[in-house]
Nucleic acid binder design. Sequence first.
DNA 1: CGTGAGGTTGAGATCCTTCAACAGATGTGG
DNA 2: CCACATCTGTTGAAGGATCTCAACCTCACG
Lengths: 233, 233
Amino acid sequence: MLSREHYDEASRLQIFSGCRPETVAMLLEGAFLHKFPEGIDLAKEGELPDFLHVVVSGGVELYSRYRDRETTIEVIGPPNVFIAAAVVLDRPHLKSARVIQPARILMLPAASVRKALLEDAAFAARIAVELATAYRAATKDLKNQKLRTGLERLANWLTRRDSETGSTHRIVIPFDKKVLAAQLGMAPENLSRNFATLARFGVKVKGARIEIGDPVALENLAKPDPLIDDPSS
Amino acid sequence: MLSREHYDEASRLQIFSGCRPETVAMLLEGAFLHKFPEGIDLAKEGELPDFLHVVVSGGVELYSRYRDRETTIEVIGPPNVFIAAAVVLDRPHLKSARVIQPARILMLPAASVRKALLEDAAFAARIAVELATAYRAATKDLKNQKLRTGLERLANWLTRRDSETGSTHRIVIPFDKKVLAAQLGMAPENLSRNFATLARFGVKVKGARIEIGDPVALENLAKPDPLIDDPSS
DNA sequence: CGTGAGGTTGAGATCCTTCAACAGATGTGG
DNA sequence: CCACATCTGTTGAAGGATCTCAACCTCACG
């Protein structure tokens, strides 16, 4: 049960914009707004979803295992929703979710979400927008994986991250390098080697801090494509 | 404008089930139901979507280019919808679409779809289900790409295709091998070599016809995972 | 100071791509 | 009916990309 304060905060989230007040009330009825420390698992692949999760603050890593391998599918921050597809279809999670930066998470009961979907077109449309966005992000990642080499993916990650954080040409990797490696689809050792290769293009790495010495050279190598790299397209 | 006959056929499509008759009428108002021969491009990446497309029969390949490379993202048949995400968000296509088996396509005006989304919760919910399914398919493909080798992807494609077509242990590849290679994320030459490798596991290839001589051995190699390979999960 | 976790570097093996040549099937025009 | 062209797929050789295993390094922390 949410406090008055939390209720107000939650109801202002983008996911509820345009929805009927009754819909919001119903969704928040059995909702929780919890803080989670780093390392906690919020969902496990293969299990049925109990809640739709909204990241209010912090960071969450979505990852999957197969045989003895593991990969990161996505890292998400506020104000993003996750597990939406599993909730809508009432099917098992395809990905596990783990907190990688202390996070506040709003959890909406899955059954309420499915009910709201059929009762409030505005909410259904918002969920459709969320799903469409997530689908497009997955499509872009698929293109990134299939059409680029590891070095190109890294170069593009750097240019994109730089432009997202003010184009100061100074980046800080906000999580462990092995998470970045998995997200980019390469072994951690390979990430190191690719960083070493990028030194020739003016990229200096010191721990999690990265300086882009020659933005033009890097962008020339990366050859970013809006249909893969633009987060907003 | 649709004929009476086509109108009836179209209105029975799954995408309209549960929707209000007015919604269906509005959507079909400016709709087309066309036949397209093999090779025709139905959409081009980078362009804004004019129509939501529904495959009534035939096959459509969704593919993307980057630099001088090209890859197949997905091959879809009836009764699937495509370009839904671009239509919902009114953003450029991320993929091009090309007919690879003579197809009948129902085309719904994009503006009508977005209007219907806000007016009819049942339709919005159906679109959400379509998007959730497509998103999950993309997630599975991403896992397939990132967690498996080319040989494993091929082995799993064979076992999955076999079980989808009656488990007769005889498969026919329904399109060119180079399309299969691109879909599986490998060069055409590599597909040939991977087929040659699978001979050791009882797989016999003659043109587009494939015989699975030792299903157990193949499945043993493939190690299918419902969270990657089950089309219905 | 040891200890451990995260990261880097080196060496070898594997996976995969590219380029080139060739084979097989299909189709066309003479 | 044959010569030829074309398209698709196969095979070979070489090189590039990537992974694995192992050693080492660095730094924060008890």
